[in-house]
Computed example of a mutant assay.
Amino acid sequence: MMSEIKAKLNDAVKEAMRAKDKSRLSTLRLATAALKQIEVDERIELDDTRVLAILDKMVKQRKDSVEQFTQGGRDDLAQIELAEIDVLKDFLPQAMDEAEIASVIQAAIADTGAQGMKDMGQVMAIVKPQVQGRADMGAVSKKVKELLG
């Protein structure tokens, strides 16, 4: 079964083509190409979880680029990256707030009976699928360390 998010992406490509929205179309094509590449390389059909992980990674890469462009005084390029982030975020679930993230982490710690840093892997294994695409994994990881430390 095709990923629902992938289907939405493909529909958005068609809409952007009809609307002649070049910047949106180029971002959507980058996303669909990234998904296609993985499907071809690994000979699989991507599911929503994997699609979210890929889109999440693309957003993260663009955030890093924005930071670098801003530091380098290239606001024009930073704006392009920010526009791409906005397009990609349309396909990611609503971002979680701090309290939601903390409660997912607390529940995972309780479920695993985690005692300290040595159990971080177990906790992250439960937390990651629940927050993927909805929270910055770096921040989540930091929060898990904080709560286990």
Rank of each mutant, 00 (worst) to 15 (best):
D75C: 00
L77I: 09
L77K: 14
A78P: 01
A78V: 05
Q79A: 15
Q79G: 12
Q79L: 14
E81P: 00
E81I: 03
E81R: 11
E81Y: 03
L82H: 01
A83I: 01
A83P: 00
E84N: 14
E84C: 06
I85A: 12
D86I: 06
D86R: 15
D86K: 15
D86F: 07
V87D: 03
V87M: 11
V87I: 15
K89N: 15
K89W: 02
K89I: 04
K89P: 03
D90S: 13
D90Q: 15
D90A: 13
D90V: 04
D90N: 15
F91I: 09
F91T: 05
F91M: 10
L92A: 09
L92P: 02
P93Q: 11
P93G: 10
P93R: 07
Q94V: 10
Q94P: 01
A95N: 05
A95H: 02
M96D: 04
M96H: 04
M96Y: 07
D97C: 04
D97N: 15
E98M: 08
A99T: 11
A99C: 01
E100A: 15
I101R: 12
I101A: 14
A102K: 14
V104R: 02
V104H: 12
I105W: 09
Q106S: 13
A107Y: 00
A107Q: 14
A108K: 10
A108D: 03
I109D: 08
I109G: 09
I109M: 04
I109V: 03
A110H: 05
A110V: 12
D111T: 09
D111R: 11
D111I: 01
T112G: 06
G113K: 07
G113W: 04
Q115D: 08
Q115P: 00
G116T: 05
G116Q: 08
M117E: 05
M117A: 12
K118A: 13
K118L: 06
D119Y: 00
M120W: 01
M120I: 14
M120F: 00
M120A: 15
Q122F: 09
Q122E: 15
Q122D: 15
Q122P: 00
Q122M: 13
A125P: 00
A125L: 07
I126T: 09
I126V: 13
I126F: 02
V127L: 06
Q130F: 01
Q130D: 06
Q130C: 06
V131I: 14
V131C: 09
V131G: 05
Q132N: 10
Q132D: 08
G133H: 08
G133K: 09
G133F: 04
R134I: 07
R134F: 03
R134G: 07
R134S: 08
A135Y: 10
A135K: 12
A135G: 12
A135M: 12
A135V: 10
D136Q: 13
D136Y: 08
D136P: 05
D136N: 15
M137N: 09
G138I: 05
K142I: 01
K142N: 12
K142W: 02
K143T: 12
K143H: 12
K143N: 07
V144P: 07
K145V: 02
K145P: 03
K145H: 07
K145Y: 03
K145C: 08
K145D: 02
K145R: 15
L147Y: 02
L148D: 05
L148V: 07
